[in-house]
Computed example of a mutant assay.
Amino acid sequence: MTSSSQLGSEDLVRRAVAAFNSGDHAQAMDLCELGLKRHPGDSALCHLLAAVLFAKADLPAARERIEASLAARPDNVPALILAGRIARAEGRLEAALQFLDHAATQSSRVEILLERARIFDQSDDAAAAGAVWTQVLQSDPKSVEAMARLGRLAWERGAPAEAEGFLDRAVAGAGHPAQWFDLGLVRQDMRKFEAAAEAYRHVLEMSPDAAEAAVNLGVVLQETGNLDGAMAAYSQAYRLDPSTFGVIAMALTSAPSGRLWLDEEALRRILASGAPAPGAEPLAVDARR
């Protein structure tokens, strides 16, 4: 068996990559550091060590290593993309864009567009983010992240039908709880209350501690006149996060139909217990007023 002391730089890189990909970051780091003792400044080893340090959230050390890698190979596209990611994580957004702009002169990889879009998201530049996410989706029509972000951006600019189209596509392959939640918000705004309830239920199936989704589920069920279902959802939300009480109490008296509790503590007890609401006074609210 070949010992570590007999391995050359390329062999160490291969072993370190295998360790990193298997989730053994400690072994990957040890192999990179061993290689750099023998081959100081080796661009591949510096790059890989930067990736390990980035995965461990040691951003200053990751930046130092990726800069060393780029000093040896300034046009290396994967290293430039990683440098952009590290800079974005540090909040150095202009520097991140510069790395990616340099990478774009060498390659048309979709990862470059992805990182640019994420940077514009982080800088709250909705127009620029939307333009680049559109480019991402044109380059990769199956990009769920692009569909989800374009849906969210469309909703934020007041285009719910467009938003629903993107988000429907994003969740088609099961979806992430955040994507289902955004779809619920869009459908709720469109007064598609039953469809919104379905979306919020998906959130709670995947993320049972999502108190905000439980509150919103209660709201849309209440809008459909399903008060028992709404109370069950509100109870779930309150047990997950008691700070939701104010929103729940307001929702109970602001929908077209609701219930009124004159005793706040009684309502808290009902929500905490998850039991039906005996003795609650039905309250009819005319939503047209």
Rank of each mutant, 00 (worst) to 15 (best):
Thr2Ala: 14
Thr2Lys: 14
Ser9Ala: 15
Glu10Cys: 00
Leu12Asn: 07
Leu12Pro: 08
Val17Asp: 08
Val17Tyr: 04
Ala18Phe: 08
Phe20Asn: 08
Phe20Gly: 02
Leu31Val: 01
Cys32Phe: 03
Leu36Gly: 03
Arg38Tyr: 06
His39Gln: 14
Gly41Leu: 11
Gly41Ile: 12
Ala44Asp: 13
Ala44Met: 12
Leu45Phe: 08
His47Phe: 14
Ala51Arg: 13
Leu53Cys: 09
Ala55Glu: 14
Asp58Phe: 12
Leu59Ala: 03
Pro60Ala: 09
Arg63Gly: 01
Arg63Trp: 12
Glu67Cys: 06
Arg73Asp: 12
Pro78Gly: 03
Pro78Arg: 10
Ala79Asn: 04
Leu80Asn: 04
Leu82Val: 02
Ala83Ser: 10
Arg85Gln: 15
Arg88Lys: 14
Ala89Asp: 13
Leu93Ala: 05
Glu94Ile: 09
Ala95Ile: 09
Leu97His: 13
Gln98Ala: 12
Leu100Phe: 10
Ser107Cys: 03
Ser107His: 07
Glu111Arg: 09
Leu114Lys: 07
Ile119Tyr: 07
Asp121Val: 11
Gln122Met: 08
Ser123Tyr: 09
Asp125Trp: 08
Asp125Gly: 01
Ala127Val: 15
Ala128Met: 10
Ala128Phe: 04
Ala129Gly: 04
Gly130Cys: 02
Val132His: 05
Trp133Ile: 01
Thr134Lys: 15
Thr134Phe: 03
Thr134Ile: 01
Leu137Ile: 07
Asp140Phe: 02
Pro141Gly: 04
Met147Tyr: 02
Leu150Ile: 03
Trp155Met: 11
Arg157Leu: 08
Ala161Lys: 11
Ala161Pro: 00
Ala170Met: 09
Val171Thr: 05
Ala172Tyr: 00
Gly173Asn: 08
Ala174Tyr: 11
Ala178Thr: 05
Phe181Ala: 13
Phe181Gly: 06
Asp182Gln: 15
Arg187Cys: 05
Gln188Asn: 12
Met190Ile: 00
Phe193Ile: 00
Glu198Gln: 14
Glu198Ala: 15
Ala199Gly: 05
Ala199His: 06
Tyr200His: 05
Val203Lys: 10
Glu205Pro: 00
Met206Tyr: 02
Ala210Tyr: 13
Ala211His: 13
Ala211Gln: 09
Val215Tyr: 11
Asn216Arg: 15
Asn216Met: 14
Leu221Ser: 05
Gln222Cys: 07
Leu227Gln: 14
Met231Lys: 06
Tyr234Thr: 10
Gln236Ile: 02
Arg239Ser: 07
Arg239Phe: 06
Asp241Gly: 03
Ser243Asp: 13
Gly246Glu: 15
Val247Asp: 12
Leu252Ser: 02
Ala255Tyr: 09
Ala255Lys: 11
Pro256Gln: 04
Leu260Arg: 12
Leu262Asp: 07
Leu262Trp: 07
Asp263Lys: 10
Asp263Cys: 05
Glu265Val: 14
Arg269Lys: 13
Arg269Asn: 11
Ala272Tyr: 06
Ser273Arg: 09
Ser273Pro: 01
Ser273Asn: 00
Pro278Val: 02
Ala280Leu: 08
Glu281Arg: 13
Glu281Pro: 00
Glu281Lys: 10
Pro282Ser: 04
Pro282Tyr: 09
Arg288Phe: 06
